[in-house]
Design a protein around this nucleic acid. Structure first.
Lengths: 155, 155
DNA sequence: CCATATATTTAGGTTACCCTAAATTTATTT
DNA sequence: AAATAAATTTAGGGTAACCTAAATATATGG
């Protein structure tokens, strides 16, 4: 009866993680602001997460993560970062990339995530700072014509 | 008060579209089978979609799309096809690609979809059937080493 | 240390989907 | 056409998130 963590719960954990970086804890109100959700709703979700052992909550208006919660938060964060890198590499504007990453990070199959990761790493590991094919891709996005069509050196 | 179409509703419309290809209509039971949802739930959703003008429903157990519904269905379908092509290009197994595509197709920003489309087109438009960089990428996935590192001709 | 201001919780609702079980309607078989 | 079988709808529930408004608890300034 392993009450699985929901999608939205992952967002909360990640947000708490981020907001807790400095002090080690955060507050309902800040989570509420970050997630654009009313404090009452945050209160509900947080007390649920605390019952499930993901957040330390208790007495004094402080919300922090348990190790269990931190683990989830960090893995979600990693996934999101991959997605953002990936989408920005593809030319999606940063802001939109971040939004979309946030939306889809919860629902991707690990296999898909693995391939996205591979792709990001492939681009990063290239000895060229800006590989030829990627330059070609950007050009293609602008002009709609594949540069290789009339080129001597293909990508 | 433009009652927006929900995510799930898009799935229903796409499914109805697909199942209607042959005869122009389909049945509750078939939709139910395709979406793995009980007929009672399909019945509900379909009658909601019919109130909203997306499906023709009526008396005789036939469910079909209105032009308005077809438009939605087709655009969802297009998005999904791009996603599938894209993910398979990246090396995600077809089956998983299809699942994931189905999950995220509803939530992507049009800008992101545009870039995915560009990417797919970039690969397709390449004069080379299997561009060098893509070959390199596949090799990278297997060996974990970027082929360009020790190569004379970089991608 | 009390009064006010701020933060949080509770209570009561809403919406979107989904379910089971019990009608009811439509189709088929004899 | 009547009886049975199959498909659909209705009724009654459930869960996950969200909301507003009204308590309540905590923090702070005088």
């Amino acid at each position: 009866m392993l009450a699985r963590i929901g999608r939205r719960a992952e967002d909360y954990l990640e947000t708490i993680h981020e907001l807790s970086k400095e002090k080690g804890y955060t507050k309902i109100k800040d989570i509420s602001a970050k997630l654009n959700v009313k404090p009452a709703s945050v209160s509900e979700m947080v007390s649920k997460l605390s019952k499930q052992g993901y957040v330390v909550y208790g007495k004094r208006l402080f919300v922090g993560l348990t190790p269990k919660g931190r683990e989830v938060a960090e893995s979600v964060k990693e996934r999101r970062e991959i997605l953002v890198k990936f989408l920005t590499t593809l030319g999606v504007p940063r802001e939109i990339a971040e939004e979309d990453a946030c939306t889809i990070e919860h629902v991707l199959n690990p296999e898909t995530v693995k391939q996205l990761k591979n792709f990001v790493k492939f681009v990063e590991d290239s000895p060229a700072i800006n590989p030829k094919w990627l330059k070609h891709f950007r050009e293609f996005c602008q002009k709609g014509i594949h540069p290789c069509e009339h080129a001597s050196v293909r990508c």
